[in-house]
Amino acid sequence: MRRGRSELHTLAGPYALDAVSGEDRARFERHLAHCESCGQEIRGLREATARIGVSAAVRPRPELKGQALRAAARTRQLPPVSRDAPAASPGWRGFLAGARGMAGRRAGLWPPRLAAALAAGLLVIAVTMGVLMVGAQHRLDTDQVRGRAIAAVLNASDVTMLTAKVTTGGTATILESRHEHSLVFTAARLRALPAGSSYELWLMGPEGTRSAGMLPASREGMIGPMVVSGLAAGDDVGLTVEPAGGAARPTSAMIMKLGLVP
């Protein structure tokens, strides 16, 4: 082992404690990129320092939580790093390659806009929202955030309503606002799924196929309203049936697909 390398290696402790200058940090990180055993060691040391930190836990003021949830609701998320990142293991890469093929078979836009039904749709959503709010006071913070996000879409100057049939039964309705980069999803009369399966909503477009979340449980035949943020240009919306915990990529055929307003 060269002298410079072993000298660098002793920086592992200070590095894991963030007790290095910017210059040392950069030097050590260059070293880390080529030293697999160092990466493993840093990982273990980081777990140890994290435990020191976790052991100091305190209870934050409760009102900070609402602020944090609201901030998140209006903050756009970063997409995953490049799929061809060298760090990805072969298994993961194969998995992604399959998903890529699927996203490539993107079908054309389909169902029509039903502007006339907009008012009726808004009413249904308002009523459902009211029921959800009354029934779930313990989730007040979440509901407030969701309620506000829904209101933002409903009140946007460019709100558009779209509906589509779900091939396995039922209909889906979407209120979309490009301006808010968000949509509100509701569905009615969807087929009940066996235990262990759930409906999962997807955004599909030039930024790739991303899960928009699992559909919440049906209440009296109605699902939602569910807010999906982070809408990108060219996105379509799709629905699949997935294992209850959700999947990272669609694993079954689309049972509903809606082309959003470009």
Binding site: I52, G53, V54, A56, A57, V58, R59, P60, L64, K65, A68, L69, A72, A73, Q77, P80, D141, T142, V145, R146, R210, S211, A212, G213, M214, V227, V228, S229, G230, G246, A248
Partner: peptide, 27 residues
């Protein structure tokens, strides 16, 4: 993983788990 897909309910759970440890250490 759910948060990465924009799941706000999952984010709330993550917040509940991590806000205390993060604040305690940072403080």
């Amino acid at each position: 993983a759910r948060v990465a897909r924009g799941d706000q309910v999952a984010y709330e759970e993550v917040y509940d788990q991590l806000a205390g440890p993060v604040l305690g250490m940072v403080r």
